[in-house]
Write a protein that binds this DNA or RNA. Structure first.
Lengths: 224, 224
DNA sequence: CGGGGCGCCAGATGTCCTTTCAGTCGAGTC
DNA sequence: GACTCGACTGAAAGGACATCTGGCGCCCCG
């Protein structure tokens, strides 16, 4: 099994009531390059808002209701349901109606689960091109080369990753939580000073006031 | 079975060698609001470029190879494979590796197939318009950009949130309590001065008397 | 085993927003 | 037409947030 790209590991929220399965999945998914937080389903909804995971994996046999409540909050987050052993097509259709993205019966093969997770994520986050441009900023991912108006800029790792994220949608305003999660990973919520610090340095290195702060919200690369 | 969204019926390219299954699916999918073109797998690649379908359904038991060739042409088109009866997890993992989006074993339930088709299309299609419009006011949520008759308006956080709320139903009159609760949060009931103040400034910044007061009740964005 | 680069953090400072207050204006009522 | 209550708005106080700077610790590389 190939490890996920280092660039950005996907964050998976795992709602699985049974201890053994949960820790099994936590361990193996982590090995396969996912950042996993396992919870019992009671905690799932609450964590959803805090963590903003890339995907939710619901292992609860009663997961249907959770799926619905989750969708109610109007999150775009993809959901994969692990069914109960006796699922029939009707159950599955109902699950899809509730907005889930895939449904896998138990007992399942771990590799198939991973394949399905990847298939869903592939869809949600379409592949980024090797060459990114944002205004006068050019980023060449294979070589990690960044140029601003032709001038070469060398960036340390975190600043480079932060730039990548911001450049993925240059006009868009990213919230601090979002940036912290995607660049620093799941469990970094609240460390705004760290983000601020890097944003500040990135701004200085790029020059030209590219990195702009949106008060009380976060940052964007090309405001206005 | 709910009919497909009226907005735009999805075009499905169906590559299924077996005559009976093909016509069955053609007929039923058409009834369920899809635009279906059924072909044998030889023709699929060629038609792919001409038709640009929204989704490809591969019924061929040898569909793996087709899926690969299809992906080679680097189309973003989603693909669902209908497996052969004897598929095992290894086959399925291989299929996902080839880039397919879902895999359904035969014999399958038609309703489940439709549910899965919808789930995949849901993912692919809607980068839902994050665009709101209220009269001549346009709001782009990702960039937090607000324009009035083309003129760009910059808003501080609270005013922006207030505008969002008002624009969510521009004609409607929102009571002050409602606005306070939704923008300032639960425990803010009674602080009408604060709301007044922000409404006043929002009105001034938007110009054109958009934010209108309804005496003794609250505010609305487009009165009359 | 030392040095430098980098990630992370905390305190000081400055900036901008929010809230409140106070005075005025306007609408509705008798 | 006078009175009352609510709405409007400028200014000022206060707070929340952003930025910068310097320091500490870690890891990689020499």
């Amino acid at each position: 099994m190939v490890a996920a790209s280092v660039e950005c590991m996907s964050a998976v929220l795992l709602a699985e009531p049974e201890e053994a399965t949960r820790s099994f999945l936590e361990r193996h998914l982590a090995q396969d390059g996912f950042e996993v937080v396992g919870v019992t389903d009671g905690e799932a909804l609450e964590l959803l808002e805090r963590l903003c995971p890339d995907l939710v994996l619901i292992g609860d046999p009663e997961g249907l209701e959770l799926c619905r409540r989750l969708r109610e909050r109007d999150r775009e987050v993809p959901v994969i349901l692990l069914g109960s052993q006796e699922s029939d097509p009707v159950d599955r259709v109902r699950a899809f109606d509730r907005g889930c993205d895939d449904y896998l019966d138990r007992p399942f093969h771990y590799d198939e689960l991973v394949a399905r997770i990847r298939a869903v994520l592939r869809r949600v986050a379409p592949p980024e091109s090797e060459q990114m441009t944002a205004g006068e900023i050019e980023i060449d991912r294979p070589t990690r080369r960044v140029t601003v108006v032709g001038r070469r800029v060398v960036l340390p790792t975190k600043e480079y990753e932060l730039l990548l994220k911001l450049a993925s949608d240059p006009q868009r305003v990213f919230t601090k939580d979002e940036l912290l999660r995607d660049v620093w990973g799941f469990r970094s919520a609240g460390r705004t000073r760290t983000l601020d610090s890097h944003a500040s340095r990135l701004r200085r290195r790029l020059g030209g006031g590219y990195v702009r702060n949106v008060w009380g919200v976060g940052y964007c690369l090309l405001g206005d």
